[in-house]
Nucleic acid binder design. Sequence first.
DNA 1: CTGTTAGCGCCTTCAT
DNA 2: ATGAAGGCGCTAACAG
Lengths: 354, 354
Amino acid sequence: MTVTLADVAARAKVSPATVSRVLNGNYPVAASTRARVLRAVEELDYVLNGPASSLAAATSDLVGILVNDIADPFFGIMAGAVQSEIVGPGGRAGGERLAVVCNTGGSPERELTYLTLLQRQRAAAVVLTGGAVDSAEHNAAMTAKLRRLTDAGTRVVLCGRPPVPGTGAVALAFDNHGGGQRLTEHLASLGHRRIGYIAGPPSRTTTRERLAGHRAGLGLGEGEGPDELVVHGSYDRQAGYDATIELLRRDPGLTAVLAANDTVALGACAALRDQGLRIPQDVSVAGFDDLPFSVDAMPALTTVRLPLFEAGARAGRIAMGREEPPPGGIAKVRGELMVRGSTGAPRRDGAASR
Amino acid sequence: MTVTLADVAARAKVSPATVSRVLNGNYPVAASTRARVLRAVEELDYVLNGPASSLAAATSDLVGILVNDIADPFFGIMAGAVQSEIVGPGGRAGGERLAVVCNTGGSPERELTYLTLLQRQRAAAVVLTGGAVDSAEHNAAMTAKLRRLTDAGTRVVLCGRPPVPGTGAVALAFDNHGGGQRLTEHLASLGHRRIGYIAGPPSRTTTRERLAGHRAGLGLGEGEGPDELVVHGSYDRQAGYDATIELLRRDPGLTAVLAANDTVALGACAALRDQGLRIPQDVSVAGFDDLPFSVDAMPALTTVRLPLFEAGARAGRIAMGREEPPPGGIAKVRGELMVRGSTGAPRRDGAASR
DNA sequence: CTGTTAGCGCCTTCAT
DNA sequence: ATGAAGGCGCTAACAG
């Protein structure tokens, strides 16, 4: 029924071994033989059986990419960048590796499940993007799982998430703390004192680091000072909207709102407008990430630009062994403060009118 | 070295076949035996070898998703929706299917290459999203390739792209023509007569259909009437910016700009603003797709909402055989006109001041 | 319900 | 540079 390598061999009047060598190109084959084989492949419309060759060779050309939400450009950009770097040697058609993008939805269980599935596929490499859930239990499970993967020869790269010690996984961590701090210092230098903070889900490393940076920018130490101007929510627009209403309720005199990311910031902007407040005259707003749409918001969003594409591309190259991992297997990726129209000096009277 | 099914069998004192049956759950096994096997799996930390089982069973749990650009939410939303529907029966961990997301970058060659790669992996199903390149050559190649896939038992679903006759592929096509037409009629009813159109790449079906709808809305027949107010570009923000400048050059008296999609529309808005033109007082702008950020533009973008998530989810279900394909294997997915702040009546004087 | 027996299609030493 | 042969790890009939 389905044409196999043996069929090709028969038609080309060579042994299966020779066909295999031609197809994999990892071995010297006479030009004339190669041509004959290739022609037979054409004529028979032969397509290699991936599972069979993976089984025999004990390797696979699958590369896993874990993301929290593929519909979010934050992850889409990184996933696309990783993918652009995992093409096979020569970039030839057929020599390529396939990216398996796994949508975890931010769930630790699904994250682990997908890693098992990738392990089952004997993935050549795995790239985990974005923040991690930071609980002792999940950390332990992840450590075990990642170690097993690296032990089995799968290269593991963390892109935009903190290192997992003792696993052999390379980490390109975003400087969320520094970014959060710079953002807050920017607002403070403008004269803001009552700054609301819309944080992401409490358990995520990204949330914690950005919030810690914010608090550091405020001059607060660990666990010090009041939290009444911090509201947690998910990383979406609606959460930004709701949190802003809540912050305004807690302190109508707010002069600035710092959001967990740009998407949340857009929700915050919408809420402020619906409350009749002007940006930035009445309330300044800032986001994080600098996604493509952020510059098109009105006014354009002040934010911290994270080099998502570059980081993803680097992760992809490291995963493919085409670039040296950073010393110690850990690199910190800095963000750049982008000051735009959505932040300005606070109103003189200090109280936003509703 | 690596633990195999036989090792588990030995430890559980059963035959390999029994272990396989427990793991696949497709066969009656005594509860006590199952428990014993499961314990052995735990103790040995055994992970099934995917390639081996795919080879033996002649099936795989990989599902391909082809997208033009995974960083674009238009595709990200569909990909995420497909992925949410391809979980295995019971939704159990391990019973899942893996989504292989392939970024074609809009290149016909890469599209074909990825299909071959998926064919090689013996993918259970393939979903192709977004517009296709519409050339005789590529159509022929795609027809051949898709037929081969469906012949091999791979379910193929086209999501947001026109049918490919004679292939057994199910198509959920977006009503781009109708959307384009309604958008233009909306502008016309507002009193606009000089409408610029920023089209996507000329060869894509999406571009052609939307543009044809626009021309129909203008009351023009096929190939009839002047094209001086149509500019082609890629589907990105910069293209929208550049095209708008060009349109303004061609006709400074323009009162409206229709963009190929929302992203392009944002670029158009930026260009208009940079030219000192107000939206919609001087020039109305409309997009297409209704991506999440469109409602946050200022003013909010008038556009055509495409049910991307719903369509992707349906495509996923059909691909998994969990939903009947539409009659004839073809369904048209309609868009909904969303009238928002970016469109309004044209200026009385009819000429935009620069 | 469980064990036995053959392959699935390819890669890879080992020869030649 | 090419051929021969064994096995990668698992599943799918068949028996029992």
